[in-house]
Design a binder for these strands. Structure first.
Lengths: 204, 204
DNA sequence: CACCATTATGAGCAATCATTCAGTTCTTGC
DNA sequence: GCAAGAACTGAATGATTGCTCATAATGGTG
């Protein structure tokens, strides 16, 4: 893994207050990016929100991109964690139950902070390192989905790999759009229809 | 319709060369935004690409946003035109045929210039006027899709409205993602699987 | 040709921002 | 309690960029 030195912290905190400062900066960045977007979310504003001088910010982050990168990595990590946590539970008895689990998880995830998520998605292409991680994450999720689908006898599609990719992409994107936009859609109905579509697709 | 004066051309061209200049600027803008993205696609760079002075650019566009807005409106218009053109032809005999038509159109459309499209999608939320138009466009498309679906007896979903929305959103987003990203996916397979999914959903 | 509206030019202004660094304050270990 | 390093400060810098405006060139018209 090639780490771009222009994207990683310059200094490892050694005192407690330094760790606190780091965290305050990161939380402020999340707030500011959410409120103003990436371009208008200036580093000075982040420092101000964090109640910290701009100089302190630059002691821990070599530049603005590095701050967003850390936010993104944190988001990915929490998503991954969530996924493995769900994996340990009982599997639903039907493919429909499985699909419902998927859709519900996506809706919940995107309801969290759609605006910050949007900033992240928009800026992601700027960091090859991040793209690499996102790509890997999606691949693993697709593989995992495929393995889950394989356990259900009712699932009849021949190419589970492609089915898994389409299902995951559809869930992610449709839910993201519908939740992020201000379209007044009934989330319950969205959930039901997506589940129906996937189930019929898989078990036709 | 409220037209924001800060987004519309200051001057109507009266001579041929002025019209030419306008067009050159717009084409250059498409190129520059495609190559550099919106933020790094500076107005000076656009003027340079157009072989025109920066002053000329500002005679026709009051600011940078207005340029992108015009590009977006042009894209929407061409899409609408394409849609009505397709409407005049013969309807396919089966719902599957209809879905294939939809998916093929989306793939073709997105294959055109994914990077410029991406810039547009990212920047769209900045213009309420544009959002309004996009929203209207989607509503009309959904209504149209719903009407088409109604003509097929094999279609058995109860809520055609929601079905139309989900189908259109899925097509647009999945195709956009898969085409725009560099994922090596077989477009033919993508088409087939999407068609299969929609058909089974509709006719289950 | 002569006149004027239209169009084109591009140096430079003003504002914004990411980032630096010299100096100050705080913590820790002895 | 005192050095020495760690952490923090914020005015200043330098670079970028959207945009203006005074001036020049061009085209149409009588």
């Amino acid at each position: 893994m090639s780490r771009d030195p222009r994207l990683h912290p310059r200094k490892q905190p050694r005192q407690v207050r330094a760790e606190l400062t780091r965290r305050r900066i990161l939380e402020a960045a999340a707030q500011v990016f959410t409120e103003y977007g990436y371009a208008a979310g200036t580093t000075n504003r982040i420092a101000e929100y964090a109640g910290v001088s701009i100089g302190s910010l630059y002691q821990y982050y070599p530049n603005k991109d590095a701050i967003l990168l850390e936010l993104m990595l944190a988001h990915l990590d929490s998503g991954e964690e969530e996924a493995t946590r769900r994996q340990t539970g009982e599997l639903p008895g039907t493919a429909e139950g499985l699909m419902r689990l998927f859709v519900q998880a996506a809706i919940a995830n995107h309801l969290e902070d759609p605006r910050l998520l949007r900033v992240m998605v928009e800026q992601a292409p700027r960091s090859p390192e991040l793209l690499q991680r996102v790509y890997q994450f999606k691949n693993e999720r697709n593989a995992h989905t495929r393995d889950l689908l394989r356990r259900y006898r009712e699932v009849r599609v021949s190419d589970l790999e492609t089915a898994a990719r389409i299902i995951n992409a559809t869930i992610e994107l449709v839910v993201h759009q519908v939740v992020a936009e201000h379209e007044p859609i009934d989330l319950q109905r969205l959930e039901d229809e997506l589940v129906a579509m996937f189930t019929r697709y898989l078990t036709a």
